[in-house]
C-alpha cells in the first residue's frame, strides 16, 4: 500500500520537477519569440495613422481651423473668462444642466434609431426626472439617481447603418467634423429646441447659442491652449484627436 504511494509520489515528483525546471526555459523561449514579434510589429500598435484619413480639402480646412483657433483664443476664451469671474458657479452649472437637458430628446431619438432600447429608456427616465423634479433641467437629480445620459447623435446612427465618414471637414464655429458628421449635425440641430428658437426668433436663438458656448467654455478655461501647447502641428493634432474620438464613440 505504502509502496504504491511511494511509487506514485516518485512519479508525481519527477513529473512536476521536470515541469518546474523546464517551465522557465519554455517561458523564456516563448518570451524571446514574443519579443522578436513585438520588435517587428511594435510600431504596428500605432499603425492606424491619420495619414490614412482622407483629407483632400486640407488647405481649406487649415484656414477654417485657423479661423476657429483665433475665434476661440481671441474672443470666446477671454469673454468666457470674464463671464466666469462675475457669474456664480451655481448659476453656471444650472445653465449647463439646462442646455444639456435640452439635448436629451435628440439622444433618446438616436438611441431608438440605433436599436439601443435600454439606453433610450434610461436617458428618457433621466430626462423626465430632470425636467420635472429638476425644474426644467436646471438641477440634475438624475445623476443622483444614477441615471446615465447615453450618447446618441445622428452621425452614430448613420454609421450604424453603414454610412462611411467621408472626407475630413473643419466647420466654422463647430470645429472638426467630416461629411457624415456635418449631415448628422444638421439632424441634431433640427430636432434641438435651440434650433426651434433660432428658427422663430433668430436674434434670440443666436444669443442663446452664444451663451451656451461661453458657459460651456467657462468650465474648461485654458484647456484648449494646454492641450495644443506641445503640438508641433496643431491642425494635425486636432484632426488626429477627432479621428481617435470618433473611433471610440463608434466602438471602433
Amino acid at each position: 500500500m505504502f509502496r504504491k504511494i511511494f511509487i506514485a509520489s516518485i512519479l508525481l515528483f519527477c513529473f512536476f520537477s521536470i515541469r518546474v525546471v523546464f517551465t522557465p526555459l519554455v517561458c523564456q523561449a516563448d518570451s524571446t519569440v514574443a519579443e522578436v514579434a513585438a520588435e517587428q510589429d511594435e510600431y504596428a500598435e500605432y499603425d492606424e495613422e491619420v495619414g490614412d484619413l482622407y483629407d483632400p480639402w486640407e488647405p481649406m480646412n487649415r484656414s477654417i481651423f485657423t479661423f476657429n483657433d483665433r475665434l476661440h483664443l481671441w474672443i470666446i476664451e477671454p469673454t468666457s473668462s470674464g463671464y466666469q469671474k462675475v457669474t456664480p458657479s451655481i448659476l453656471r452649472s444650472g445653465l449647463r444642466n439646462f442646455f444639456n437637458n435640452l439635448l436629451e430628446p435628440t439622444r433618446i431619438l438616436n438611441c431608438l434609431l440605433q436599436g439601443r432600447f435600454q439606453d433610450a429608456e434610461e436617458t428618457f427616465l433621466r430626462f423626465a426626472l430632470n425636467t420635472t423634479a429638476g425644474v426644467g433641467g436646471i438641477m440634475d437629480p438624475g445623476t443622483y439617481e444614477e441615471l446615465k445620459s447615453h450618447k446618441g447623435q445622428f452621425f452614430q446612427t448613420f454609421a450604424k447603418y453603414g454610412v462611411s465618414s467621408g472626407p475630413f471637414l473643419v466647420l466654422p464655429f463647430f470645429g472638426p467634423s467630416d461629411i457624415r458628421g456635418t449631415v448628422g449635425l444638421v439632424g441634431d440641430t433640427v430636432v434641438s429646441p435651440t434650433f426651434i428658437a433660432l428658427h422663430n426668433e433668430p436674434a434670440v436663438g443666436f444669443a442663446v447659442q452664444g451663451l451656451n458656448t461661453i458657459n460651456q467654455t467657462s468650465f474648461k478655461l485654458g484647456e484648449y491652449e494646454k492641450l495644443l501647447g506641445g503640438a508641433l502641428d496643431p491642425y494635425v493634432a486636432v484632426r488626429d484627436a477627432y479621428v481617435q474620438n470618433q473611433q471610440e464613440l463608434l466602438g471602433k
Binding site: 492606424e48 495613422e49 491619420v50 503640438a231 502641428d233 494635425v236 488626429d240
Partner: peptide
C-alpha cells in the same frame, strides 16, 4: 498616436 500623426508628415 497623436504625436506620431504629427511627426510623420
Amino acid at each position: 498616436r497623436n504625436y506620431r500623426s504629427q511627426f510623420g508628415p
